[in-house]
Nucleic acid binder design. Sequence first.
DNA 1: TTTTGTGAAGCGATTCACAGCA
DNA 2: TGCTGTGAATCGCTTCACAAAA
Lengths: 227, 227
Amino acid sequence: MVNGKNKKIQKLVKIPSTTVARLPLYLRCLKNIQDEKTSLVSSFELARLSGHNAAQLRKDLSYLGEFGTRGVGYEVDELVRQISKWLGTASVRSVAVVGAGHLGQALCNYHAFINKGFKISALYDNDKDKVGKKVGEIDVKHISQLASGVLDGPIDIGVIAVPARAAQDVATQMVEAGVKSILNFAPAKIKVRKGICVRNLDFSTQLQIIGFHLASVEHGLTSECCD
Amino acid sequence: MVNGKNKKIQKLVKIPSTTVARLPLYLRCLKNIQDEKTSLVSSFELARLSGHNAAQLRKDLSYLGEFGTRGVGYEVDELVRQISKWLGTASVRSVAVVGAGHLGQALCNYHAFINKGFKISALYDNDKDKVGKKVGEIDVKHISQLASGVLDGPIDIGVIAVPARAAQDVATQMVEAGVKSILNFAPAKIKVRKGICVRNLDFSTQLQIIGFHLASVEHGLTSECCD
DNA sequence: TTTTGTGAAGCGATTCACAGCA
DNA sequence: TGCTGTGAATCGCTTCACAAAA
């Protein structure tokens, strides 16, 4: 409004974390659309498919740039390209999982990750009986090899799939080994140095949130639901 | 402020979903405190342990009631009781898992659920080879038995641990069988009738969010991190 | 004095409503 | 005309700052 530089400034503005969290969802819907042979999509249609409203979708996309054509809509392929770019899908991310229990095995056997740009490149455990065995295509190595495992190439994401009591210790070792970000499944708050991105994803917590909503409904306090 | 009914009114006010999401975390920290023999905790201490600020913690707790003593702090046991109550832990919640793959097995073998008030009471799959086998203590039943399985007692929470293409179908069957809420691990948007609480928890989405932050840092756009 | 509980201010996300453009 | 892109309004959560209470 003041001058022509506003668009540049806009691009440097922090993208709301809520928007970031929706991007993977939009991308998923767009890929479903690609499988059919539609090449154009309106904000209304994509909003409907992803379960949001059209204004929000347009605002979200506007943080990334101007990809649509007024009066027409968005080109599906272009939008897929752009969102993928922002999600950092240019390179395949290397993931190391620590904890070869059922959850660790579930992750290693989930082959859809590779389509989304993630490759599980190593699996570690401290159980001597598991070390040396294979889970899917992946050798189970001893946790002590985590540091040297990074020599095979940098690890972008470390996944903590161990019991809570071991979580902090594993996190510390991951950071020392050069892991840049952590997905933590253990029900424990882990502390790492600033600059390491940590996301927590504890199943119990999720069930407890649902439990709250069930209790609310039972007590007649609300009929509302989860996010 | 206007009259004495305000406290009652306060209790009827909707509790922010962000607050609800923090309650399980507070509870976890409090239980850790209980294991030591501290019986009192201040908002500052609990905030530090849970990684939030004291004002937010007090505001969160104030939605549930007035449990603290000014100048003193909160009694740990009392706070545990109150938060548990709001999370609906009065009764044990019955959980049915559909999908006996690695993830379904991981869930069934996670014995800590019972301490948090959740009991996995059934596991279903459509694979004839899996039906009849045991996962931990739990018999694998055929998905077609979901409806009649509810006769053994109501199912509070249905967990979807099947591939995306089957997710909507499973969700529909769950709702027909009387399941009241759903935790969905499949990367698919599922539609259910109003009043059924659905939470989505797709691993790929979580990795993609981390991917965004990694890309941001790599491009020097930010040094900020995830939630 | 210490720490809670809470109005009020601040801030960020959502939604509205329409100008801008094909 | 139809749909995007976006200021402005609104909504809701977080944080501040202090009165109330032990």
